[in-house]
Design a protein around this nucleic acid. Sequence first.
DNA 1: ATATTCTACAGACTATAGTCTCTTTGTCAA
DNA 2: TTGACAAAGAGACTATAGTCTGTAGAATAT
Lengths: 197, 197
Amino acid sequence: MNRRQHKASLTKKKISDAAIKLFEEKGFRNVTVDEIVQVTGTSKGAFYTHFKSKHEVFFDKFKEIDRYYEEVLLDFVKEEEFSIEKLRIFLRLQMKYIQEDLGWDVTRTIYENELDPSRKSYFLMEDRPLYRILTNIFDEGQKNGEFRNDISTEKMVMVCLRVMRGILYDWSINEGAYSLEEEQELLFSTMINGLEA
Amino acid sequence: MNRRQHKASLTKKKISDAAIKLFEEKGFRNVTVDEIVQVTGTSKGAFYTHFKSKHEVFFDKFKEIDRYYEEVLLDFVKEEEFSIEKLRIFLRLQMKYIQEDLGWDVTRTIYENELDPSRKSYFLMEDRPLYRILTNIFDEGQKNGEFRNDISTEKMVMVCLRVMRGILYDWSINEGAYSLEEEQELLFSTMINGLEA
DNA sequence: ATATTCTACAGACTATAGTCTCTTTGTCAA
DNA sequence: TTGACAAAGAGACTATAGTCTGTAGAATAT
């Protein structure tokens, strides 16, 4: 990385840090790009060379989510004997993390971004770690007879993803008004119930 | 209704009709309010006296959805002996209707609107016919022992709504790329499985 | 060392949803 | 009938995300 690239990456980080801080303080919608640009002493040009949109500032946050799933949550899950328990715990911790560390405004913003066809989708990237994690769990659980055998792993992953999206979307439109950690239990246990062998 | 109100309602209808037609032709995001105003020969002032936002033009469409659920779908369901079958058929027909009559762009637009905290939410209106319909089905099914008795009807309705939102959100971000009518089957049957007594 | 090219950035500009103010005209009370 | 009021509408204006164009100076080639 030469001097120029280095300086550029500093600018990107400066913008990103300031933006995320402002979003946390005032909420995503109440922060303007002009404001971000102003407090960082940069410019529209700088902002949009580093980010495709105001939403995209979250992209790093998003990669962070997946890293957290892989590095932290998988550890908690590893020791469990049964795949069903792995799944249950993974989902609970995931919801807890989203509630406590991301918060509903970030979640809402990410969910909103996905609905805009002109913007890059993170949910539809096929190689998301989340998908691998779920695939592994279902695969293993199906092999040792815990999950139904009449449905492919892919389909079970799809079911699981849609249920997750359902509760996270619902939580977002409710502006985080209920405890995700508590409410997830019934929903996911119903789903797991329906997927058990 | 006096002459003035009559004329006003004509204007509203003119705007609404033209807008929906344009949305169908070009997609919601590719139609501007200026364009709607121009083709109807009205003005911004007229538009915004009748609609709180561009999204709100769908409000009527939304009421139409619920009317359809109540008037058409309930008829198909009435004859069924088992509540579980009623639920299954209702959900299938609902998805079929959304796929064929509304389309993913309208669905996406409605789902997007809900994510904006500054706008009126339709999903959170407690007296939506949809909620009554689901409550009735679960209530009846619980009484005759088809559904689990350890969960309240309200909670089962919540589970069902979240699953519905999950698949519709997912279908929206996929830009309607798969058949809702086909894909709903596995998801809802899994859920019903988990709710059966 | 000099010329050339490229890239990060500045900031003016555009597109568009939504607001504000002013005007017109129907309604209603006296 | 007339005067006050209100509501529907016209259209200028604002706020803000995103685009476009030009430039300085760093990298690179000769």
